[in-house]
Design a binder for these strands. Structure first.
Lengths: 324, 324
DNA sequence: CTGAAAGCGCTTACAG
DNA sequence: CTGAAAGCGCTTACAG
């Protein structure tokens, strides 16, 4: 059996109260007692049980992270930075992959509540998660509105969409098409599309958007796009994986990049920069997004609801590669 | 304040014992009482506290996962599948990114022990983690030997290295060089190198291996390789990111692929298949690795130490693209 | 079919 | 400087 605080007390010849005080460096304890206790802990290989501590303190230092899929380099990188910042602040991270499925999100949220997490970071497309928003549960959303009360952190999607579209126009593209993820309402990522449309209109072009969704795969949508718009010479994809798939498809169709078709992606993860360094893309500051999100969440956890910014949009950066 | 079981009891007009029994569906309870209790839970929005439960049962259903870096698509995908299987079995996952740093691994392991995880899955290069192996802590390693007693699950690295090297030979490469990750001893991944060397010797070639490490970056090593071996016409890289960097560098140097240089990677993640579908690579069965690892871990957790296979190597698959 | 009591491993006011 | 007691939110033998 694992030793507990009473075992330590017995070995050290003191009370468990004293052991606890040594453990927490709390109150006055003689040096001699401290040493005895430390030696006893060492001797019987004692580690405090954080479950019991958390139960008493009603604080677990646990944070839940709900993302669609850690396989995706954007989310994998986001999870990495979130975990990094959490650890630096003494928080531990419970990972949940929702696959954007609302039923899974609800189950995960209930699991997190039962596990008494101090807060939740949510990257989700489903506004329905709202139903679960307990006023007492600190929560922060990344890149997606959940409600008026839940703070959102993301990149400056409008600026990103603008930069991407303007670049394609500057590069003389005549027929620029946008490919977006699921077109949910009130998702800041849809500002990428809005910016695309605004810029297009400003230059008196007709905006056209294709949508990739769980029902219509990347490949399928891109193929359709090329069939329906053989004249396309510029594509702004709302993430790098879609951009990569566009490159692949245009290679299959013998459309050369960047001469016949120019492509701009979105995200600019390290993985994509390594694997496909030629891709022109809009880079999100994933590390800062993680930092700001956790800063906000920890303020909520500490009960400082006043200083909280409800919407934070961090600057994006255009990375020009050889696909434009 | 969050309601507890006594609050539910009060509202339902029963004892907390009864509420607990309803919660756990244990013993005989009249239908009428059950209903009263469920209604009360609903009414005051009660969720059981899993901390208290776990404290009593001495089982948390928590599993710790220590990986180097969830940003890397291989680990991101592995984390995804591990989380998926854990959830399907009722386990929850605590994510730890060690960056292969031993000091971090030790801190994480202590954190996991304090949090009373039921078991730990470790993907690490540091054998030193052994020092922490408590006989009572169920542990399983992925792709890396930790000790004679810790089960390892991985892909059939020797077969993978063999397939890769033989393909390059079959494709008429004269000067085949291998690029490996950190050359630690007793890492099953080093069988990839062993196979490369064996095949090379079999064909009376001189095996040459370059090593990428935290000190020497991919780009640096690859650049050196091209400088020192301009004759190279075949490269077997021990992961796809290295292979991608080789492709980039050879493009910079005007070496065309596959005519002047053929490249084979290793891992075959979905991300790489999407972004760089032309890459020839050895695909690891990441989903099966996750499944087998957790199967073994849960056996250890259940105390069945007899049926446990200490080494499991799952079959790999050659995916031929246009880089060979 | 239901309840009072003890205990999981801690911590902290309260006494001394 | 140190200890006995109560309690965090549960569960489960034991009684009835």
């Amino acid at each position: 059996m694992k030793p507990n605080i009473h075992d330590v007390a017995k070995v050290a010849g003191v009370s468990s109260t004293t052991v606890s005080r040594v453990l927490n460096d709390r109150g006055y304890i003689s040096e001699k007692t401290k040493e005895k206790v430390y030696k006893a802990m060492e001797e019987i290989n004692y580690f405090p049980n954080d479950l019991a501590r958390s139960l008493f303190h009603k604080k677990t230092n646990l944070i839940g992270l709900i993302i669609p899929d850690s396989s995706n380099p954007f989310f994998g990188e986001l999870a990495f930075h979130i975990e990094r910042v959490c650890t630096s602040l003494g928080y531990k991270l419970l990972l949940c992959n929702s696959l954007n499925r609302m039923d899974k999100e609800e189950k995960y949220l209930e699991m997190l509540i039962r596990n008494q997490v101090d807060g939740v970071i949510v990257v989700t497309y489903n506004r329905g998660i709202l139903n679960y928003h307990k006023p007492n549960l600190p929560i922060v959303a990344i890149d997606h509105y959940l409600s008026k009360k839940i703070p959102v952190v993301g990149s400056d999607n409008y600026e990103g969409g603008k930069k991407a579209t303007e670049l394609l126009i500057k590069k003389q593209c005549e027929h620029i098409i946008h490919i977006n993820g699921p077109l949910e309402l009130e998702t800041p990522a849809n500002f990428r599309r809005k910016a695309y449309e605004d810029v297009m209109k400003e230059y008196e072009r007709l905006p056209i958007t294709y949508e990739v969704s769980p029902q219509k795969s990347r490949q399928e949508v891109i193929s359709k796009l090329f069939d329906e718009h053989p004249e396309v010479d510029g594509i702004f994809a709302s993430d790098d994986l879609i951009a990569a798939a566009v490159i692949t498809e245009s290679r299959i169709r013998g459309k050369s990049i960047p001469t016949q078709l120019k492509v701009v992606g979105y995200d600019g993860t390290d993985t994509v920069k390594t694997i496909l360094p030629e891709l022109t893309t809009i880079q999100q500051p994933i590390d800062s997004i993680a930092e700001v999100a956790i800063d906000i969440l920890s303020k909520e956890i500490e009960g400082e609801f006043d200083n909280i910014q409800l919407e934070t949009y961090l600057p994006v950066k255009l990375l020009e590669g050889r696909t434009t």
